[in-house]
Design a binder for these strands. Structure first.
Length: 472
RNA sequence: GGCGGCGUGGCCAAGUGGUAAGGCAAGGGUCUGCAAAACCCUCAUCGUCGGUUCGAUUCCGACCGCCGCCUCCA
């Protein structure tokens, strides 16, 4: 496997730290609001990594955090009243923040299921790991990397030489570049110092600590939880492009100052999902949630094709025609496996099929090993379908072709039964009626029935083996 | 101002120093009662201008355009 590493900005050979096991941490959702399709691009990328490694024969230990404490919204302001997202939303909705967090966490897991994103092995909640965070904070204070300022605790960025290594920023440049934008604070030694612990009596979610009653800063949860579940050094840490700075930069500083070990070997950041050239965000109000897209008629598999069709690091335009295109692609693949390959007559095996299977498996694998080149992987599937269709395989060859498709589907995961509808039996009856009409060459009646079915969103596929139908 | 990314056919999108995968759409065929599906055929010289090179879309420079991070954000 060759993988792009944000730390070096290059594609590098990937090797696991532990024998054949990939330990991967994914920055997860902040559960104060329903995640939108843009958020899921990062999670789909994490899932792609997981599936690709497993396809290639590795074991993967995957951990994704659930941020249920919210982050400071005004981290750099002079007072400690930085409003918490969860709290703000709770106030707005007049609900208990814990209740919102649990509800949205469940919504998130539901959406993952729709998108067929495999569950991580652990979903640690920030609120359940405050002791681990406090332990790290204390350690940072003890080693001089953090300092107390009243009831707040800040990380001293000047104490970590390599701060900025991931994002390419340097403290000097940050100071210069941020002039006028990042206010200096009385209780911070350096404007770039970030909070490890904040105290605020008005804050709903708070915990006792040696530094005062308060809540953890934005970055510490990932350092604490990744260490707990995966160890001091992770093989891979993923996140959206916006996590790179400051979040991941800060994680590196905290973790490495505590453990003295390299924190992450490969940083993997996905590209943006963009609407009309702009990044999609909750703030802009241009988001679509998974349920909204399902409501518009796209299946989870359709959305998977859309998300995985192009390289994970490229910007991905969000446009409905592209979702439609993804659906067409998914339909073609499903049609191939479920229709083209079924009911084939007996015939001698063809060397062409054997060759196509072997070459496709190799091409597909090679594409994934090349920094997760899903475009090339998908192209190998298209090429395979074309070769097989052209060869008009017999029964045994068709079986083997179908087996390969299912084998490769371990990565894309877009095959599978269409969900049964309540009116399946009724449709079957109409289809049978039309077949009868056709056998009697009553074309008028046959076409009328097809029109009726079309109106109900049913597409018919006649063949010598009989008539099949599917929902569009 | 600092850091970073992008610009490939109607649309989406891989990719490489030696004349550009794939998909969607479109047009023309084959097949079909008609369709659908499938198959066949057609459809680009890679933002602009320079440079390096025998040769650049691929390397370097400049420019134009677009976007992101630097503040919560996948």
């Amino acid at each position: 496997m060759r993988l792009h590493n944000s730390l070096t900005g290059r594609v590098e050979p990937f090797e696991t730290l532990h024998e054949n096991e990939v330990r991967m941490y994914n920055c997860g959702p902040t559960v104060y609001k329903r995640q939108h399709i843009g958020n899921f691009r990062a999670f789909a990328t994490a899932d792609l990594l997981r599936r690709s490694f497993e396809f290639l024969g590795y074991r993967v230990l995957q951990v994704m955090n659930i941020t249920d404490v919210g982050h400071l919204t005004e981290d750099d302001r002079a007072d400690a009243s930085g409003e918490d997202k969860l709290q703000r939303e709770a106030t707005r909705r007049a609900l208990d923040p814990w209740e919102i967090a649990r509800t949205e966490e469940q919504n998130f897991l539901d959406d993952l299921r729709v998108l067929r994103i495999r569950p991580a092995h652990h979903y640690p909640r920030a609120t359940e790991h405050v002791p681990e965070m406090l332990e790290m904070i204390q350690s940072l204070i003890d080693s001089g990397h953090a300092y107390r300022a009243g009831d707040n605790v800040y990380f001293d960025v000047s104490s970590f030489e390599r701060y900025g290594a991931l994002s390419g920023n340097t403290l000097a440049e940050l100071a210069a570049g941020a002039s006028g934008r990042v206010e200096s604070r009385d209780d911070k030694r350096n404007p770039q110092d970030f909070a490890l612990w904040k105290s605020d009596p008005k804050h709903i979610m708070q915990w006792d600590s040696p530094f005062g009653r308060g809540f953890p800063g934005w970055h510490i949860e990932c350092s604490a939880m990744s260490r707990k579940y995966l160890g001091d050094t992770l093989d891979i840490h993923t996140g959206g492009p916006d996590n790179k700075f400051p979040h991941h930069e800060c994680e590196i500083a905290q973790s490495e100052c505590v453990t003295g070990e390299p924190f992450v070997r490969f940083w993997v950041h996905s590209g943006w999902l963009e609407i009309a050239g702009e990044k999609m965000s909750k703030r802009a109000g241009t988001l679509f949630t998974v349920p909204e897209l399902v409501e518009r008629g796209y299946t989870g598999a359709d959305l998977r094709v859309y998300l995985l069709k192009q390289h994970y690091r490229s910007p991905l335009p969000f446009e409905f025609p592209l979702l439609d295109e993804a659906r067409r692609i998914r339909q073609r693949i499903a049609n191939f496996v479920e229709h083209e390959l079924s009911g084939r007559p007996a015939a001698p095996d063809q060397a062409e099929i054997s060759q196509a299977i072997e070459e496709t498996r190799n091409d597909f694998r090679a594409a994934l090993e090349d920094d997760l080149n899903t475009s090339a992987a998908l192209a190998s599937i298209h090429a395979f379908m074309n070769r097989v269709n052209r060869a008009a395989p017999g029964h045994a060859d068709a079986e083997r072709a179908g087996a390969l498709m299912r084998e490769l589907d371990a990565v894309f995961d877009i095959l599978g039964e269409e969900e049964a509808g309540a009116d399946d039996a009724q449709i079957d009856a109409l289809v049978a009626e039309r077949d009868t009409a056709r056998s009697e060459k009553d074309w008028e009646r046959a076409d009328a029935l097809r029109d009726e079915l079309t109106q109900r969103g049913i597409e018919l596929l006649d063949s010598p083996q009989g008539t099949r139908w599917r929902r569009r």
